[in-house]
Write a protein that binds this DNA or RNA. Structure first.
Length: 484
RNA sequence: GCUCCGAUGGUGUAGUCCGGCCAAGCAUAUCGGCCUUUCGAGCCGACGACCCGGGUUCAAAUCCCGGUCGGAGCACCA
């Protein structure tokens, strides 16, 4: 090409690929983990952690461990042991190993004894409030200087159930003058008599998250840890365990918190709603669980693309439903058939047309998907959306899509030819007389009822109900709204 | 209050480590045009941002200081 005026040369278009950054210090492959608490099925918030970890393990090779952190027997829903792996499988996350912390209690006891013996931990039998006050004043509690032998004996009493809940805790010595009070001498074990769903009353002394996490991150050989920013302070605490043992620290990454406006995620709220019968189940479309998104017709790939685009920075952000929906649409649109659904229908009669028949493609860009054909004959009765019909004045013309033009005249429509009209003419969907009742349940809890065209009877899956939105059709008369 | 962290258009982000190619890229949303007997689809275009104030420098979104705003943690939860 001859360029007489090079300054007018069109700048080469930069193609921006959304890629996650490289991880630090990758030596060959990586070992990573995700650690949801087993309080219920996974929700959209969990999907970020799962996708990010999975992406990196797939990029570098290595191993992804699902670690179920069930060391608080009071906050476990047994459904999680089954459902979390299923949720991950649906997301397309490859789990190479499952570690259930309550099955690893002996390791925690062993590591605790080693730390006690080395003088890095002590059993404290102070009143809870007194201990807190001392710590916040940077004052050592009297038990801090107990000799290791005695601590080992006391710890044994914690383990064997001699102590009752609240009577004793195991404390990791850190730095009483640490600027962050929560990092000062933190609790590693406490006593609980709650019944554990997997182990009943076998154990009395349960490790706190910061202890079991540090021990497992080492024992499981983790090279990189990616988790939410809310764990930054925990990382600080866990480092003491690594340093006392001279273990090599994994590389830590903390992504920012995401606000999900209007999405119901909190397990406690969901459980309350379930108990009250407010929600139909964990997959109620009003909820933010993966089960609910799945029921609404979202693709797992949507989650992956969304979280990769969001990156891994420490900025807090707001979940963008707009972008999430548009990603899903981008994925499904090309293979999604078009169907007619008329919400809040009004019946009208078409006067004057002869041998009317409608023919519409299942997908305008893919004629190979076929056509829906309806023979209507003479002066047929059809249904159209009342919202459209009622907003028209008598004498106004509109187009019944893939059928004909009509002029409104009360509750009738005068046939006005088949020719393509000016662009300004409103084009609406319609359904023939023998259409089926159909209800769409929306995530805001509302329900749209109307009529769906007869040929939709056997279709299952997401369809684009023209001029209405994408809907996951699950039975001949029920669908769940996916997105606009 | 204490500790730590962050701040790019309406929204989500790229760029910040190692200052110049950034008068800031991409996506989404909105608006307009084209196409199409749906459109929220496709193509084209428009709109629109470096929190504020100082400093360093030939040069700052990028480095330094101060401020403002926002967030997280400060549990015998994870």
């Amino acid at each position: 090409m001859h360029l007489e005026f090079p300054e007018f040369e069109v700048k080469e278009k930069k193609v921006q690929v959304h890629n996650l950054p490289e991880l630090r210090n990758v030596k060959g492959s990586v070992v990573m983990r995700m650690a949801p608490s087993p309080s219920g099925p996974l929700h959209i918030g969990h999907s970020r952690m799962a996708i990010l970890n999975d992406e990196y393990v797939k990029r570098y090779g290595g191993k992804l461990i699902l670690r179920i952190e069930d060391t608080n027997p009071a906050n476990i829903d047994p459904i999680a042991y089954e459902q979390i792996p299923r949720d991950l499988e649906w997301l397309g996350v490859t789990v190479h190993q499952i570690a259930i912390q309550s099955d690893r209690m002996e390791s925690y006891y062993e590591q605790a004894r080693l730390l006690i013996a080395a003088g890095h931990a002590y059993v404290c039998t102070c009143i809870q409030e007194e201990f807190k006050q001392k710590i916040s004043a940077s004052v050592a509690c009297p038990h801090r200087e107990t000799p290791p032998e005695e601590n080992l004996e006391k710890f044994q009493k914690m383990v064997d159930g001699t102590f009752s809940p609240g009577q004793a805790v195991l404390i990791i010595k850190t730095d009483l003058k640490h600027p962050n009070p929560s990092v000062r001498d933190w609790i590693a074990f406490r006593i609980s008599d709650a019944v554990h769903p997997r182990h009943g009353t076998e154990y009395h002394a349960y490790p706190m998250m910061n202890f079991s996490v540090a021990v497992d991150d080492h024992l499981l050989g983790l090279t990189h840890v990616i988790r939410g920013k809310d764990h930054i302070n925990n990382t600080e605490k866990q480092k003491y365990i690594f340093n006392y043992n001279k273990w090599k620290l994994p590389e830590y990454y903390h992504y920012g918190l995401v606000d999900f406006p209007g999405v119901i995620l909190k397990t406690s709220i969901i459980k309350k709603g379930l108990a009250e019968g407010k929600y139909s189940g964990w997959d109620d479309v009003r909820l933010g669980t993966l089960l609910a998104f799945r029921k609404r017709g979202f693709r797992p790939e949507t989650f992956r693309r969304y979280w990769i685009r969001s990156g891994m920075r420490e900025i807090d952000s707001e979940f963008s439903v707009e972008i999430f929906n548009s990603i899903n649409k981008e994925i499904i649109d090309t293979s999604t058939p078009r169907l007619f659904f008329v919400p809040s229908p009004v019946q009208i009669r078409i006067i004057g047309g002869k041998d009317l028949s409608g023919k519409a493609p299942y997908h305008p860009s893919h004629p190979e998907m076929g056509y829906r054909t309806y023979i209507l004959g003479q002066d047929p009765t059809i249904s159209v959306p009342s919202a459209d019909w009622n907003s028209m004045q008598d004498g106004m013309e509109l187009r019944l899509k893939d059928l004909c033009n009509v002029i409104k005249d009360g509750n009738s429509a005068e046939f006005a030819g088949n020719a393509m009209k000016e662009r300004k003419t409103r084009i609406i969907q319609w359904v023939p007389e023998n259409s089926r009742k159909f209800s769409v349940y929306r995530p805001d809890g509302s329900e749209d009822t109307g009529l769906i065209e007869p040929l939709a009877e056997k279709y299952r899956g997401v369809a684009q109900l023209e001029r209405y939105g994408y809907v996951n059709i699950v039975s001949e008369n029920t669908g769940f709204f996916t997105h606009p």
